[in-house]
């Protein structure tokens, strides 16, 4: 700056000038302050291993790589929770495309599905997290703005109906399109999955999803070891790391083994119908062909594979 005195010619001073000493002192102090400021990072770093840091994208893992990864994750679960979990990686079956239908005429809003999801998928306990959000709606209106997800009174209220919303497993999922690192994609059986070890946590998918289907791990999920569901899937219900996205996978660790999703089994009203859309004999196909179907936000053109229906 023009107002500053010219730097003292060091050679003339025959050594190190006072100014240089001060500068050095300042720089040292600054560095020390910086080290202190970012010290919390050192407390965080041990929570991620080098192997995890260097892990490749799910689709680039060879069967051997994948086995190593699964074993590592099981080991880490054992270290952290003292629980023997089994993390499987079931692949999509050829000839299967999952579809889900929900009968709005009989759903009574008890949220047993949300609870089953909460327990099955190892969700964060304090936040009551669940991939299903049930809205109490006014009869005669489809306006979600008049809906309420926080009801606590006994159900089913006579002037209400109930609209559970979860991932619609869109045919054209906008959440997949927007992901900058391909951490989320649509599997051949129609399930939109997330590689929790690849997601960078930018939450663009959460902004893009029109169904509020995605959840972010704002912190490490809190779950008591004895409550952990030990039957886990790499792409589904294993305990998620902090700072990544998660979503409903139609319980693919169950459904790819042929089993029904947890939310369906828990439903006390039998409102839920699940099955293979490609099998003409399946229950889901019968519903689609014989019932009045309502698709949430159909006008967005995302072609959900989740259908609402009514009894005649």
């Amino acid at each position: 700056m023009s107002t500053s005195p010219a730097p003292a010619p060091e050679a003339a001073a025959g050594g190190v000038s006072r100014r240089t000493v001060l500068k050095g002192l300042g720089a040292t102090l600054g560095l020390a302050a910086y080290a202190k400021a970012i010290a919390p990072l050192t407390e965080w770093a041990p929570s991620t291993s080098i192997d995890e840091f260097l892990q490749r994208h799910y689709k680039e893992l060879s069967p051997l790589d994948l086995r190593v990864v699964l074993q590592r994750l099981e080991r880490e679960a054992k270290q952290e929770y003292g629980v023997d979990v089994r993390i499987s990686d079931l692949k999509a079956q050829p000839g299967v495309k999952f579809g889900y239908a929900l009968n709005l005429s009989v759903c009574n809003g008890c949220r047993k599905c949300a609870e089953a999801c909460h327990l099955e998928n190892n969700h964060d306990r304090p936040s009551h997290n669940s991939y299903i959000r049930v809205f109490e709606m006014s009869r005669g209106s489809m306006d979600l703005e008049k809906g309420n997800a926080h009801y606590t009174h006994p159900v089913k209220q006579p002037d209400k109906y109930y609209l559970p919303v979860q991932c619609q497993q869109c045919e054209h999922p906008p959440c997949v399109d927007v992901c900058p690192v391909e951490a989320t994609w649509k599997e051949p059986d129609g399930i939109v999955v997330v590689d929790y070890n690849w997601c960078i946590g930018c939450r663009y998918c959460e902004a893009a999803c029109p169904y509020h289907a995605r959840r972010f791990n704002w912190e490490k999920p809190k779950i008591a070891p004895e409550e952990i569901n030990r039957d886990q899937g790499y792409l589904s219900n294993r305990v998620r790391p902090q700072g990544v996205m998660e979503k409903c996978t139609f319980c693919l660790h169950r459904t790819r083994a042929g089993r029904l999703p947890a939310c369906l089994e828990a439903c006390p009203t039998g409102a839920r119908v699940f099955g293979n859309l490609l099998d003409p004999q399946s229950e889901i196909r019968w519903v689609l062909e014989h019932k009045r179907i309502f698709i949430l936000k159909e006008e967005l053109g995302l072609k959900p594979q989740f259908f609402y229906f009514f009894d005649a």
Partner: peptide, 13 residues
């Protein structure tokens, strides 16, 4: 920088 380091450690919570 300090607040960010804490955010990374404790999560976006």
């Amino acid at each position: 920088a300090n607040a960010w380091a804490i955010q990374v450690r404790d999560g976006m919570a």
